[in-house]
Nucleic acid binder design. Sequence first.
RNA 1: GGUGGGUUGGCCGAGAGGCGAGGCAACGGACUGCAAAUCCGUGUACACGGGUUCAAAUCCCGUACCCACCUCCA
Length: 476
Amino acid sequence: MTLRLHDTASREVRDFVPLQEGKVGLYVCGLTVQSEPHVGHVRSGVNFDVLQRWLRVRGYDVTFIRNTTDIDDKILAKAEEQGRPWYNLAYEMHRELDRAYAALNVAPPTYEPAATGHVPEMVELIEALVERGHAYPAEDGSGDVYFDVRSWPTYGELTRQRIDDMEAAEDADPRGKRDPRDFALWKGWKVDREPATASWPSPWGRGRPGWHIECSAMAGKYLGTAFDIHGGGMDLRFPHHENEQAQSRAAGHPFAAYWMHNAWITTAGEKMSKSLGNSLTIPAVLERYRGIELRYYLVAAHYRSHVEFSFDALDEAVTGFRRVEAFLERAGVAGEAGSVVLADLPEAFVAAMDDDLGTPAAVAVLHDTVRDGNRLLADGADAAPVAARVLAMLDVLGLHPADPAWGGGDEAATTRLTEAVDVLVAGLLEERAAARAAKDFATADGLRDRLKAAGIEIEDTPSGPRWSLAQAHGKD
RNA sequence: GGUGGGUUGGCCGAGAGGCGAGGCAACGGACUGCAAAUCCGUGUACACGGGUUCAAAUCCCGUACCCACCUCCA
């Protein structure tokens, strides 16, 4: 079996062949750090984290670069509104994003470059484009530099659009552009409206980089002029990725061999960025759900499928995931995260993952395996080998329960608390056992109800009653 | 106007010419004092209208509705 991936450029699922045997260079467009991350933002982080994990399990040496855009119009505008320096806002939101990723067990990339740290690299690239005749300084003295779309014959190839079919941008006042579709590589400093801290020296005067150029410059710096996979959200296809590819190739770089794009999470049928959002920021969702549960919900859907977010659907996912956890608890297997080998995984799971990261099918295999394990348990047989396979699959998906990433709080304190509760519950369970022995079921059930009201569920098993915490968030 | 995607059972969500992914919910059975958990069983779904085919949810044509991108966007 070989790994096959959907390539946006060719619009088909094709065999993945790395440029260099055994190695993969992966670049993913991260976020513009301008507001608290919501569920939608974090999807691409989770999706590409799964890709990265799968590539590693498949034996590739992966160099994974995910950038952050820490300077742009929106950041400047918001910072101004909030009356603080733009870099202060960008930095705070960057930390917020890091927390969100950590809470979802999204592994840090090999390196996470920020736009503002790579201005010289961008200037160099722009200079090369000017020299080659694919870019020009604006003729209106604004200090802007534009990419000359007409000078690049294959412009539009990634998204299969012809220049003449494209709607010109509404804000496409001439501004010294040769064609309204020309895009800014460099934006001259607007002395009267923008802080000096948001400008850098360049051959065309002080200014700041345009949006698209940062990714071309940073991908080139860390992955080389040709690399394997470039990823990001659907909406980045055009203009961002189209422009990245055009400017990189116009500069003589082969650029990405595969393009991967994740689909949307919508709410009320709308793109999240357009709607409400507050209840769907990661910190807000994590007040009600565990990170591992949210991640399971995200992983259970295919990365190229639209997901219509709802708390009902999330609740269902939680129920499904708890079934898996309950099996592992019963099987008494904990294991350690981060040590999966291909041989540990069921064939069907591997086949599903190889087929363009078919996580839905992979999750189906997970559940099938859990059922096998439960059957063994029901027969009193040893389920440990099956549980090991379940753990291996969870590990690949970044859902290993024993992963320290889920630890979070003060574990020692939690352990002491658990022990304390255990003693208290044990006392009540003894009373209940006595009542049951005396066939006083009213008293026995009353005790069970009291515990239930306190959030503790009792199950009678062949080896005696056991207690567990109820789901923190019912389906009220 | 251009480009791309979607419409699947009560719900979520896969699949992509023949054998009903998986989950949740529901119902029946086993187990239980009753539950819970678990196991076993129960579903003839693919927007609509045509067509191709021995066979279509899957291919073709048309229609409707929805969404995204073409402006910053995961």
